[in-house]
Write a protein that binds this DNA or RNA. Structure first.
Lengths: 210, 210, 210, 210
DNA sequence: AATGAATGAGGCTTCATTCAT
DNA sequence: AATGAATGAAGCCTCATTCAT
């Protein structure tokens, strides 16, 4: 402990992430508007004023949550796609696995529901999320589908529409889990759900075999 | 005026529904929390105080909105499924078309997003919605899929999971349209989207052709 | 009392003026920024929320104070100038008397100090005040001085500068009275002050008599 | 380093004045309430906490600013008056020129507006300012006017009132410049303004020439 | 039944002040 | 002596809810 950064400083540098983590859990729980900054501060173990040492506003805090949690996963996914060799359906599987480990089974899985719920009331946030997450994610998937079509693995398709259709079940999985799933007595296992989705994709996207 | 119900009285009895209709449109537009009762009253053409003659609270109004708005739609779908003869994939197409005309292109299309957004803040409401809408809808679709498997049209599958996967893109269509679609510069046409979904289903669900 | 407007309604119509009056006294006492709306409400005998039934914001309340108190006096002054016949020095005396009875000896006398104190922090308010009060007042006085020069009563002068110089002692009178005058043990009587000012003007502005 | 005060110590002793200087410029710019101690500290190149090593509170800092900034200026004026020989109107011109170079065109020009704005919120400060600045300034001017009357240069007058009337345009010049002047599109040139004031004084104060 | 004026609790944000280092 | 992270008390504004008419 002698040669490491003094604890005080380490604390300070870690603060924004700690606060963002506390904010994420509350945003996901209650939504953006219904989350009180008092609660965020309390959950992070600081006072309300401290939040404003690190973030200019509630919206800035939100943006940080997105930047910190979701953007890195996208970057990794882009890297995966770039380096991938082999069948396109395998690439899709890898991307899905990456998303699942980086988002789907983490607290960040609550973000899609959060965005859907608040987008119309906070256009600024929606724009930010669209620019930094959605646009990039769709571009990534569109490239993968185009790759599959080009290689003859997939049948010709309306790629823009297909991207949305392919993403939809994945998003719904986490959206559902953070909203109405609480009412289900026998919820479908996510693994089964995703496997079914992949199977549907597999047989449905490949070129018709004679 | 002698033999029919006096217009004044009929008006009075219709009030709650009129108010609920006004509330629905605003809830769908802005969400529950961001909808002000002033606006609801104004859109309904009454004073704010009048709302409290018919509803105990904003939350009570919300309940009524959901109850009035969604239940009737399922009944028709169940009737269609019951009377259907012919291929199962055709049944799915009919159900989709029915849903589109009864929900997808009406103001009710905003309800899924509304429920997703508010479910965690209003568990009781979520329960009601799940019980009266989701459960019935899923049962309907599960029966259709089971019919297809039984007839050999569809490959064997985890029906519970498949139901969720099949519904997901449809729900996402309207949820998206009421949330983040506003950020898209070139939104996919719903017709293309649904066609792509159906095509994916079609080739993906049929038994493997030799 | 039978034929007059019902008290409730009369109350409502009188409200904005009552609130503006309460606000004026506090603004003058403490300044714009340091006046809390709670205090305004309390002094007016209403709740804080009630203020917002009549004014969109603290700034709107301020503007109303100006509109209500100062603008009418200007309008009357303009009318006086328009109708005036006789010597210009007499016109100046009439304008001064009008200002004294309409502003100088009323609570509105606190407004110049208020504006001077807050102008740099609330440019929007400063702009409003300049547009509605200062510009008009200066134009009025400039016309009077020009009239005196044209008629040969006054010596030629830089009218723009003279307007400012002529107004200055009048403004300072009330500004002083609402700021540092509290420290004076033997304050000059306003009547003496204004008489001295007028005398200075009289002998100073007339064309040099041989 | 041996014979003079060590620079470090000199620095330390100069600190309060440096801080007060930084505070003055901000108080003049924004007023007392709107000046944040963060900004004062930043402009002085120290941390916010350091301010509290030298001043107990924001108010204490304010007091120091006034005490440091204004007293020395009057001494020179008193000396000028004492040594003056020649016409009294010339003395007035000299005093005005001295004031202009020592206050009017320096950052201290902001102090009158600052005092006017805050006097009612800080009575103690107002008292201090009145005692050390205003009283002395008025006494100086009163003596000059009395001198002119005694010598027959000026007509008999209410000297107390005349002092206030004579000072008013000069104070208003700097007060205006730090408040509502920002709204003026064609501000009067200070030189013209002061010249007009002097001319008005000249012709207005001399004994009536037959 | 209907109105709409009035309320007051609650949220975001700011900033003078404190204190551990 | 100096720092700067942390605090918490206010202030403006919103809006669900109440109640006199």
């Amino acid at each position: 402990m002698s040669h490491s950064t003094p604890p005080r400083k380490r604390r300070k540098e870690a603060r924004p992430s700690e606060l963002a983590a506390a904010a994420l859990s509350l945003f996901v729980e209650k939504g953006f508007a219904a989350t009180r900054l008092d609660d965020v501060a309390q959950r992070a173990g600081v006072s309300k004023g401290t939040l404003y040492l690190y973030f200019d506003s509630k919206e800035a805090l939100f943006k940080r949550v997105i930047q910190e949690g979701v953007v890195p996963v996208l970057i990794e996914a882009e890297s995966i796609a770039l380096k991938h060799e082999g069948s396109t359906i395998l690439l899709l599987e890898k991307l899905l696995a990456n998303w699942w480990s980086g988002i789907g089974e983490t607290p960040y899985a609550g973000i899609p529901k959060l965005m859907v719920a608040e987008a119309s009331n906070f256009p600024e946030l929606a724009k930010f999320y669209h620019e930094h997450v959605i646009r990039r994610g769709k571009a990534l998937l569109a490239a993968a589908l185009a790759r599959g079509v080009a290689s003859g693995e997939f049948a010709p398709m309306n790629i823009e529409a297909a991207v949305d259709v392919v993403i939809a079940p994945i998003l719904m999985l986490v959206i559902w889990h953070h909203s109405l799933a609480c009412c289900e007595s026998n919820p479908v296992d996510p693994k089964d759900y995703l496997a079914t989705h992949l199977k549907l994709l597999g047989t449905g996207l490949v070129a018709t075999r004679v």
